[in-house]
Every structure is written in structure tokens, then in C-alpha cells.
């Protein structure tokens, strides 16, 4: 895990001052803050309602400049609350956060000038056309579409044929692209994308991530959230999050490497019976459906072949035919499941 608290403290004051001065006359000039982290959350907390529901529970993480950082977790994990606090739209109830060295509470005006935010819910003006929305957002940020056209060109050419169409009349995919253009048009230093791919089909999701890669190449820091675990591997680093708490922060590779057990993909002729039999198999720490296979984890004892044979023998005794057992590398989803289940692996034995 990476919490660069000390480094950030050294940097935060000078950056803050420079930033504040700069933003008086030229809030676009953000290159001065390339030394410190782009985002720092320190025990960030948000509580909702009479019942004091902890939506965000002491969340700490750091995003480096130019990084593509993913918040991976299901709905209700607290992702949107974190985004709204970082974009100064929601006040934290505890802890602190900085974006580009600026405090999300004290310096909210400066932050609003420099960050880009694409909310999960479509929030552009439905009655304005594509072109009008884009011009509007450029004007609000005191710039022009021409000035930063290079940033959005890739994406904008795809919706340009419809530029006279009202935003409210666009399809989901086109709305998403317009929203991304509007969030980029003032050349933000940090781009916050809240679930940009939710409800989007796998092909369009792939395209969207290609666009993000190209933006990253332009040196924009991107913080993106998603409930799709398979997208995690496309990020530089990820935070797995559930119930307002971070389960793990690291590179996707490292999270996979840290998976503590051996993992096998198992299938046989009767997948339903297989499910029940594996649930009753003491060697299996957990077993759950994963596509056409069941994933079975077992204690790592340095001899996966032996474990594999034990599973084979057990299933043969239970009368299974066409048994396939493969030792596999865990996916981020496997890691997430393990974090959720913790030691209570029984939960996963469904």
C-alpha cells in the first residue's frame, strides 16, 4: 500500500501558495504543481442521515500526477461520495483531502477551476445542443473550444455529425462522450470520472478505456470509478472499496500476486451437483461460480499439483464425469471476493 503522507506534507504548503497566487491571474497554468501528488485523501469520512450511516469510513489514498487511478467497488461502496468530496460538492465530516495541493474545503473555488468531473448521472443541459453545451462549458471556464480542441478531438469527431442535436435526444453512448468532452474542455489537471461505463456493453466499454489511455498520454491525472472488476487491470493502481472502506490499494498486478491461496478452475458434467459437492469439501476454502467454471481456493502449501489431484480424486468418488481442473491466476474479482469474505469463507460457499 502506498500512503505517501510524509512526502505530501513537505509539498503541500508551497504548492498551495503558488497555486493560490497562480489562480488569481491564470488558473490554467497548473504545471507548477507537478511535484506533489495530484490527490491526497487522509482519513476522509462522510456520514449520512439520522442513522449516521458511514458512507465513507476514514478513507486514505494518494494519486500521483499522470496516474490512472481506479476506485473499484459495487454500488453503495462510497465511490460517489468520495468523488463529490474531492470535487468540493460535498463537505467531509472528518479527515481531509487535497487536489493539486489545494484543500477541498478551504480552496474549493480554486479546485473547481482546475478539475474536471463527469458525474455518474448525466448532468448536462438537455435543452442545449451538443455544440451549445460544449461552448457553454468552455465559456464558463473562461476558455474556448478551439484552445483545447486537441484534447477532445478524438472523442468529439465521433459526435460532431450530430452537433446540432439537443443533448436530451442523444443515445446513452453519445451522452457519455459529450459529457467527457465537457469535462475536458478547460484542460483539467485531474479528471474525475464516476462510473463512466456503468450499463455500457462490453465493446463500448473497451472503446471508452482506449480513450482514457490516450488522455493519460496527454498527462492528465485520471481518477475513475467502476463496478466492473475486469476494468481494474486497465488502471495503473486501484483501490478496492466496499461499505465505505478500502480493502486494498496497489497495482492490479500486485493485488493478484498477494492472493494468499492456490486457485483452481474446476468444471464437470453436472455443474450444479459440482457446486454442492465442492461446498462440502473441506480442502476447498471457498468455491463459487465463475463463468462456466467454479473457482476453488485451497491453502497454499507449495504443491498445487497435489491439491489438484485431491480435488480430482474427491470429485471422481462423488461420481463426477468429464472433470477439468486447472490451476489459475486469480482475477481482480477473485481478490475482491476474498477481501469481502475475509476469513468467513463459508459465505462464498454457495
Amino acid at each position: 500500500m502506498i500512503f505517501r503522507e510524509e512526502g505530501s506534507k513537505e509539498n503541500e504548503e508551497p504548492c498551495h501558495e503558488k497555486k493560490a497566487q497562480a489562480s488569481k491571474y491564470d488558473f490554467m497554468n497548473v504545471s507548477i504543481n507537478k511535484t506533489g501528488p495530484a490527490v491526497i485523501c487522509d482519513s476522509l469520512t462522510k456520514v449520512y442521515g439520522k442513522e449516521k450511516t458511514l458512507a465513507v469510513d476514514k478513507v486514505s489514498f494518494t494519486v500521483n500526477p499522470g496516474e490512472l487511478f481506479g476506485l473499484i467497488g459495487p454500488d453503495g461502496a462510497g465511490k460517489t461520495s468520495i468523488f463529490r468530496m474531492l470535487t468540493t460538492l460535498l463537505l467531509p465530516d472528518g479527515g481531509s483531502a487535497k487536489v493539486d495541493g489545494l484543500d477541498v474545503v478551504k480552496d474549493y473555488k480554486a479546485i473547481r477551476n482546475t478539475v474536471g468531473y463527469m458525474p455518474g448521472k448525466f448532468s448536462l443541459y438537455q435543452d442545449l445542443s451538443i455544440e451549445e453545451n460544449l461552448n457553454f462549458f468552455a465559456t464558463v471556464f473562461n476558455t474556448t473550444v478551439e484552445e483545447n480542441y486537441h484534447l477532445i478531438k478524438d472523442i468529439y469527431v465521433q459526435i460532431e455529425p450530430f452537433k446540432k442535436r439537443r443533448a436530451g435526444k442523444l443515445s446513452g453512448g453519445m451522452k457519455q462522450k459529450l459529457a467527457l468532452c465537457c469535462a475536458l474542455i478547460h484542460k483539467p489537471t485531474v479528471l474525475f470520472l464516476d462510473e463512466p461505463t456503468t450499463g455500457v456493453d462490453p465493446v463500448s466499454r473497451k472503446e471508452f478505456w482506449e480513450m482514457l489511455k490516450r488522455l493519460k498520454a496527454q498527462n492528465i491525472t485520471i481518477v475513475v470509478s467502476t463496478p466492473y472488476m475486469d476494468e481494474a487491470t486497465l488502471c495503473d493502481r486501484i483501490a478496492l472499496i466496499q461499505n465505505g472502506k478500502i480493502l486494498s490499494i496497489d497495482t492490479p498486478d500486485q493485488i493478484v500476486k498477494d492472493y494468499p491461496s492456490d486457485l483452481f478452475a474446476v468444471k464437470s458434467e453436472h455443474i450444479y451437483q459440482l457446486k454442492n459437492d465442492l461446498a462440502a469439501f473441506p480442502v476447498a476454502l471457498s468455491s463459487y461460480s465463475f463463468g462456466e467454471y467454479l473457482h476453488v481456493s485451497a491453502a497454499r502449501e507449495g504443491q498445487p499439483e497435489k491439491t489438484s489431484r485431491m480435488i480430482q480424486v474427491y470429485l471422481s468418488e462423488k461420481g463426477h464425469k468429464d472433470i477439468v481442473i486447472k490451476e489459475i491466476e486469480p482475477t481482480i474479482e477473485d481478490c475482491f471476493i476474498r477481501f469481502l469474505a475475509g476469513d468467513e469463507t463459508e459465505i462464498v460457499k454457495s
Partner: peptide, 9 residues
């Protein structure tokens, strides 16, 4: 859509 991996299963 958006449901955690265990609940999804």
C-alpha cells in the same frame, strides 16, 4: 448491474 461479486452470485 453494479452489484458486488458475492451478491451477484
Amino acid at each position: 448491474g453494479g452489484v458486488d461479486p458475492i451478491t451477484r452470485r
